[in-house]
Computed example of a mutant assay.
Amino acid sequence: MGRRQCCCSVNPALRIKRLYSGDGFHSWTVEEFETYKKRHPSGTKARLALYLAMFTGLRREDLAIVCRQHVKSGWLTIRPGKTEKRTGVVVELPSCQYCKTRSTPARPAR
């Protein structure tokens, strides 16, 4: 921006080496998905976690706290952790059929 406005003749960031942050997270293949389903049969918490992750798009830290209290009248309602202090956004999603029939029990208060 400075060069466009003729404020400086040299870009000081030109010689800074770019950081390599990796290739991101590996996306599961169909084979990996099927292997997981065979290893964790229907009705298990692991299968429920898989479907919640697939069908809600929630972050891991938000998936970890989803309990029965978040599912009412066929809707999953949760305030994601990253936005609860900034915007207070509440996410409301229709609950998938699998999640309606099998939900994890609420954690006891500590």
Rank of each mutant, 00 (worst) to 15 (best):
V30M: 08
T104P: 10
S73L: 15
Q5S: 09
I78F: 01
M1R: 09
S21T: 13
I78T: 00
E84F: 15
V71A: 07
A109T: 07
L14K: 03
Q5G: 03
L93Y: 00
Y98M: 07
P80H: 04
S103C: 11
R18S: 10
R4P: 00
C8K: 12
P105E: 13
V66Q: 04
A46Y: 15
L19V: 15
G43R: 13
A49H: 00
T56D: 05
Q69I: 06
I78D: 01
V71Q: 01
W28F: 06
K37D: 04
R60N: 04
A46L: 14
K72H: 12
L63W: 03
E61W: 06
C99Q: 07
R60D: 02
K72E: 12
Q69R: 15
T104W: 09
R68I: 05
T83D: 02
E61C: 14
L48P: 00
E32Y: 06
V89G: 15
L58D: 00
L48S: 01
G43P: 08
G74D: 14
C67W: 02
C6T: 08
E32K: 04
H70Y: 05
K85I: 02
L76D: 02
K45F: 08
I78V: 08
K38W: 03
I16A: 10
T44H: 06
G57P: 02
D23E: 15
P41D: 00
E84V: 07
R3C: 02
G57V: 04
V89K: 13
A13I: 13
L14R: 05
C99K: 00
P12T: 01
C6A: 13
A109R: 08
M54L: 14
L58N: 03
G74H: 12
N11M: 09
K85S: 02
E34D: 14
S42L: 14
W75A: 15
V71K: 01
T56C: 08
D23H: 14
R3L: 03
Y20I: 10
V66G: 10
H26W: 09
Y36A: 13
G81L: 12
P12R: 04
R60Q: 09
R79G: 09
T56H: 03
L93I: 10
D23N: 15
A64T: 02
C6L: 10
T87V: 05
H26A: 14
